[in-house]
């Protein structure tokens, strides 16, 4: 059920002068509702490369980054690996807590933020996890040779990640940031995305469908965007507006973009 919807975009909004300074949560809440804000809320993130480090280091790096750059929303990276198959790919079993270190990190981050900003847990979709457990080529090969086996493996991963998502929200996360990189031309056809990925992506979001800030991250420049506009239990969509629309932005007479890379040139 979609109750609140907005787009996390790489594009600017008019800044309003003369307003009292808002805190990060109120700024985000108001933007999501389409209300005036003192300035556009922002966030950014990166991979800290701490997937082999304990939760405390990952959490501390995340909090330090947030404090240093005063982000309005803390998007927590999740680089801890999904557990290796007990036998061999694609024979998997449902994991009740596939990312225990990450859950610990979320608890530390929650305590560190002390309620001052929302935080979101990153979840890479089952197709992406399958690629990490096998390889890009291996997943495509299995799709061609034994699609049922792939579907079964993806369902197991989705169930495990749904459990993780619930645990993340239980720690206090405002939602999950579901990273979808395969809903685009050149990776999967739209029909293949609909068959081999969408049901499992939905399973995860459905598990936390009451979280207020679930976000769909649609990675790439040939995304099947229209597919995601209705019927997903997500409050926001994040995608690269510059890649998809910067030429039109220019022709429309607006600032081309606020995609941070280009601002820094």
């Amino acid at each position: 059920m979609l109750t609140r919807r907005s787009l996390l975009l790489s594009a600017p909004a008019p800044l309003l002068a003369g307003r009292a300074k808002l805190g990060p949560k109120r700024r985000v809440d108001r933007a999501l509702r389409g209300e005036d804000v003192d300035r556009i809320p922002f966030t950014f993130w990166h991979h800290f490369g701490l997937e082999k480090s304990p939760a405390i280091r990952h959490a501390q790096a995340t909090l330090d980054f947030h404090r240093k750059f005063r982000t309005d929303l803390v998007k927590v990276m999740s680089d801890y690996p999904y557990p290796k198959p007990p036998s061999k790919w694609p024979e998997l079993r449902v994991e009740d807590n596939p990312f225990p270190e990450q859950i610990q990190a979320l608890e530390i981050i929650r305590d560190g933020l002390a309620g001052n900003a929302y935080f979101l847990e990153t979840v890479f979709n089952p197709w992406n996890v399958a690629e990490k457990l096998s390889s890009k080529e291996g997943v495509l090969r299995l799709k061609a040779e034994n699609p049922q086996a792939l579907l079964e493996a993806l369902e197991v991963i989705a169930e495990s990640e749904a459990r993780h998502a619930k645990k993340a929200v239980a720690t206090g996360a405002a939602g999950i940031f579901l990273a979808i990189a395969n809903a685009q031309d050149g990776i999967l056809s739209e029909a293949d995305y609909a068959k081999f990925s969408e049901p499992f992506d939905r399973m995860i979001l459905q598990a936390v469908n009451t979280a207020p800030l679930n976000t769909l991250h649609l990675h790439g420049d040939k995304v099947y965007l229209q597919r995601f506009f209705k019927g997903w239990p997500a409050a926001a969509i994040n995608y690269s507006a510059i890649r998809l629309a910067s030429a039109s932005l220019k022709s429309a007479g607006n600032t081309p973009n606020c995609f941070w890379r280009d601002l820094m040139k």
Partner: peptide
């Protein structure tokens, strides 16, 4: 895409990169 991306949300924008920096 531009119409879809920008006109639809109106003020409902959060500045963010399209992926990790």
């Amino acid at each position: 895409q531009w119409h879809t991306a920008v006109e639809q949300p109106g003020k409902r924008l959060i500045l963010a990169p399209g992926c990790s920096i």
